[in-house]
Write a protein that binds this DNA or RNA. Structure first.
Length: 412
DNA sequence: TCTGGGGTCCTAGGACCC
DNA sequence: TCTGGGGTCCTAGGACCC
């Protein structure tokens, strides 16, 4: 056991999407503004601190935010800009230590314990990181420092925005125990309800509760984990690379959809994207899953493990659409099931090339595709796939292009 | 006009194998 | 003919994170 040093940094960008947009729209600076798509069931993806001060927060429905602040500025999202800004920021982090673990598009852990002799105390490093991020991107961030990932993360939450906070090991419990249970990583609305019912309100309450009663209430894994966190213990290391477990696409329709052709068309477009993403990452998927939610937001999923892994979009689609047919039958029959959300996921990824998946589609699949295309074109007056979904680039092999050609060429 | 989309991890039952 | 227990895979569902 090494001596505890507060040498883990958690860097969290401030109001990331909104701040990136403000680089392009400086006239909105200082005003309540949010990033949200302009679709029917949109939620707020990011809000400036001026908007938060007026009560807008988190993934709140846009309609609610607009009711709260009628003149709130709504900026539509631009994912590519956030991806690019994120890459820049992560690159800055790697100038300070190779031990950078991105945990989302706008957050990362940095283990700087090995850089202290070279770059100075963690607090000094954190200031330098903040300055470098601002210099290279014009964006501000907050940095929490602690002896563990969890404490570092809590510290960054506590000093937002544009802040820096060190929690030294000797004062960890003093900082930790008064916090509400929701502050614990892994305590969401459901777990909080269970704990509150038992009279546990603060992290200190959890710490005082015997592990066995936490385990009996929450299960083996969560029970133990929370008890450890409540004592500031978190053995998880900062891991720079993690393997991808799965990838998927899903969409919530503006209005519930019962039309089967529309559902299939959606699965086809999603399968295209998932296939392209698999090929880009050099993966084949062993398992294909679909997910569907009803208007009341209950969700069901069906999955199938394939005889041989694939990254071929049309194979993904063929599996997905079969699963959809099965599911619709179970739920009341095709054309009679209103669908709020539909999605496809590829799971159990293996390295492409380690498998002997089919490269080309069968005549049967072609005919199936043609039928769908015809039906959809008749119904909606346009083809299956919007040009935007035909991603080209390094990930798009001859397979993707064959799909491209097939779809563009239909119907002749 | 009250709830998105990208993920990860855990649990639990049944099948199957040894 | 009867029998236990452990391990692994598959499937479905749920909670959580940002």
């Amino acid at each position: 056991v090494t001596k505890a040093i507060a040498g883990i940094l958690h860097v969290d960008m401030d109001a990331f999407f909104a701040s990136v947009e403000l680089l392009d729209f400086p006239e909105f600076r200082g005003k309540p503004a949010v990033v949200a798509p302009l679709s029917g069931r949109s939620v707020v993806l990011s809000a400036t601190y001026e908007a938060r001060a007026l009560g807008i927060k988190g993934p709140m429905p846009l309609s609610m935010a607009q009711r709260l602040v009628p003149d709130v500025i709504v900026m539509p999202p631009h994912r590519e800009k956030y991806t690019a800004a994120s890459a820049k920021v992560m690159a800055v982090f790697r100038d300070f230590t190779p031990l950078v673990e991105p945990i989302s598009i706008d957050e990362a852990f940095l283990d700087v314990r090995g850089a202290i002799r070279l770059l100075g105390a963690p607090e000094k490093i954190a200031q330098d990181v903040r300055a470098a991020v601002f210099e290279r991107t014009g964006l501000s961030c907050s940095v929490g420092i602690g002896a563990t990932k969890f404490i570092a993360k809590l510290a960054s939450q506590a000093c937002k925005p544009n802040g820096l906070l060190v929690i030294v090991p000797e004062r960890t419990l003093e900082f930790l125990h008064p916090l509400p249970i929701r502050a614990l990583w892994g305590v969401g609305p459901q777990t909080a309800k269970v704990l509150e019912r038992r009279g546990l309100h603060t992290v200190g309450d959890i710490a005082e509760t015997p592990v066995r009663s936490l385990v009996s209430a929450l299960g083996e894994s969560v029970g133990h984990h929370l008890h450890e966190l409540a004592w500031g213990r978190d053995p998880r290391a900062v891991v720079p690379t993690r393997e991808t477990k799965g990838m998927g696409r899903e969409i919530t329709f503006d209005e519930d959809v019962t039309d089967v052709d529309m559902l299939r068309r959606t699965l086809l477009a999603q399968s295209e994207r998932v296939g392209a993403q698999l090929r880009e990452g050099g993966f084949d998927a062993r398992t294909i899953a679909i997910k569907l939610t009803a208007p009341d937001r209950t969700s069901v999923s069906r999955s199938r493990t394939l005889a041989s892994p694939t990254s071929v979009s049309r194979q993904i689609y063929a599996t997905a659409t079969e699963l959809l047919d099965i599911l619709l039958d179970e739920l009341g029959g095709a054309g009679r099931v209103p669908v709020r959300l539909l999605g496809v996921r590829a799971e159990q990824l293996v390295d492409a090339g380690s498998s002997d998946g089919l490269l080309w589609d069968s005549d049967e699949e072609w005919r199936e595709l043609e039928k769908v295309e015809d039906a959809v074109t008749k119904k909606f007056g346009r083809g299956l796939i919007k040009p935007a979904s035909l991603v080209t680039g390094p990930g798009e092999s001859e397979i993707g292009q064959s799909a491209h050609g097939a779809i563009k060429g239909l119907p002749e």
